[in-house]
Structures are given as C-alpha cells and as structure tokens.
Design a binder for these strands. Sequence first.
DNA 1: GGTCTCCTACTCGGATACATAATGTCCGAGTCCCCACGG
DNA 2: CCGTGGGGACTCGGACATTATGTATCCGAGTAGGAGACC
Lengths: 156, 156
Amino acid sequence: MSQGVEWALHTCLNLTWLDTPAPAGVLAAFYELPPAYLNKQLQALVRAGILTSVPGPRGGFQLARAPETISLLDIVTAIEGPEELLRCDQILNKGPGSHAGVDYRQSCAFAQAMRGADLAWRRELAAKTVADIRADVTRLHPSSSADTRARIDALR
Amino acid sequence: MSQGVEWALHTCLNLTWLDTPAPAGVLAAFYELPPAYLNKQLQALVRAGILTSVPGPRGGFQLARAPETISLLDIVTAIEGPEELLRCDQILNKGPGSHAGVDYRQSCAFAQAMRGADLAWRRELAAKTVADIRADVTRLHPSSSADTRARIDALR
DNA sequence: GGTCTCCTACTCGGATACATAATGTCCGAGTCCCCACGG
DNA sequence: CCGTGGGGACTCGGACATTATGTATCCGAGTAGGAGACC
C-alpha cells in the first residue's frame, strides 16, 4: 500500500490543530518529507473533498470539513483509489463452465469471501475518524496541540 | 494486490478435486494463464507448505495438507508476504517530540488503528478455508468435481 | 495623507523523469518412465 | 520370459528480461500582498 497514505494521515491530523492554511512545503518539512511529492498527495485529498487549497501568499491547505466527519477510510480511498484490495479479474470466464453474461465478481465464491474481508477492513477504517485520533493523542500528550502549532509557525 | 493471489486461490481449489499431481502447464491452461508465471506463484505456495511438488514425468503440484487446514489467509500471505497492508515507516521519528528508543509502530495512534483494521481483514480471511469454498461451489454446481477432473485430464 | 497601480514573491497544479516492484519468459538440474538388451 | 541398464522426455526451480506502478521532481498559471507613484 502506498506510503503516501501514512503521510496524508499525519498531515491531516496536524491540520486539525491549525485554523489557517499551511503550505505543502511547511507540512513536508514537519516530517522531513519531499515537499513536491507531498503536494501531489494533498492534491488527491483536495479532489476527494477532504482538504481545500488556496493559492498565493499566505495560502496552502486546510481541512475542508470538521475532523469528526473525516474517517480514516476517506483518506485511504482518496490516496489509494476506490478499488478493493483484491481486484477480481474473473478468470472463471476462461474456465470450463463459463457462461457469457455471468458476472463472476458476484457469483465467484472466492470473490465473495475476499469482498467480505474487504468490507470488514473498510468498516474498521470507517469507524475511526481523525477527531478520534486527535482525542487519543491529546489524552496521551496534552501538549501536542501547542507543540504542533509552534513548530508549524517556526517552519513558516 | 498481486494478481497471482487470484490464480493461487482458484488453482488450490482445482487441486482439491484431484488426488494425483498436476503440472503447472496444465493448471495454467485451465484458465489460459502464462504457464511459467503460474509456476512461479506455485513455488511460493510450496515454500509456504501449502503445496508439494514432485519433479519428473507424472509429476506436478498437489495439496500438502487437507483443504480444511488451508485458510484463504494462508494463500494470501504465501503470495503477498507477511507484511501488513499499511507498512508504518514511523515518520513520527522525524517529528518534533521524537524520543529515540520509542517504537512508533506501537505508540502511533494511526498505526494502532490501521493494525486493528488489518487484523479484522486477516480474521475474516483466516475464518474461511479452501474446504469451505469447495463446499459452497459443490452446493451451487454439483458437477464441478467431475467437470474439473475431466478438463484436467483432457489437458494433461 | 490617501488611493490606485504595478510588481514581486509565493502558492498550487499538472506535466515530466526516475526507481522499484510486479509481470512474464527462458534455460538448466533432477527425476521417472519406457524400451531395448542380455541372461 | 524376466530382470537390468540406458536413453529420452518431462517436471520443477531459479536466473534473466520486460512492463506497469509508485516515487520524486520541476516549471508554469494564478493570486495576494506590499511598495511606489500619483492625486
């Protein structure tokens, strides 16, 4: 799975502490990431409606909606795309009892099982929001909010 | 996720109908797959202890143990490797409050959440065995056993 | 002093290279089967 | 007729190309902000 997912998750969390846009360069410097490449990932989050971008000076990225409404699944699908974990190519079509017009994504027993596992995975990810993570972090490290804001301002 | 997983799943199911080894070429022709590449995937299943291979004429691959003891997870991990879906690179180490000696695979809230989803996925896959799939298929298509055996023999 | 204009610096956004892993192919080592030969 | 040895064909196994995907980079379009000139 793409490494950009991890970057996107942490960056979204960092953005929850802020109330003004932060440029991609600053967000990248936070974890010493390649700035242009993080920018690319953030663009995907913008397309998914998770972030909004403002160009020009004092511009950057910020959350498009409340952290409570952003699930981890939203971020993962924004980066990785909507395809399920195992893309079923319906090789049964090439098999012996292949009837044209049959959708083996539905009838194939393996596809059903894999889809079930895929749904379980997505259910877990959909249940956890960025706000939940922020609450967990705040509980363990109450200074995170101030620390993050300070560091962002220092890099700005 | 690698396409070889789908091939391995269906091939293992086909092998449950047989009691003699089947060569990779025959198993590949069953679904019109590239023979040498399927061979490569089957080698991984052998290394994982799911199949056994016998060389020479009348040789090929066969199940190493009862289908009831082969879970879908076994096959997936044999092909894809044991890594979890999202490999956490601990980018927090580069962050502000990074304390050396802390394993962020454990403490990072995102890593925990992703690990939970990963476990849910694996639990689903581990619960379903090749024998379960075979039972499902037999229920819907009782002729599958004879059909598969006949086709394998025809290709042999 | 206030206001308008222009210019500069800064940002995102997409088009462009590079690296890595998945996919696909090929040939060699080992093994079994079959057949011919000898007893 | 039966046992035995050798040749041939078949199989896996790993080493070698090729393609696709993820990773990384660069430059252009657009915008806000500020400096300077003019009223």
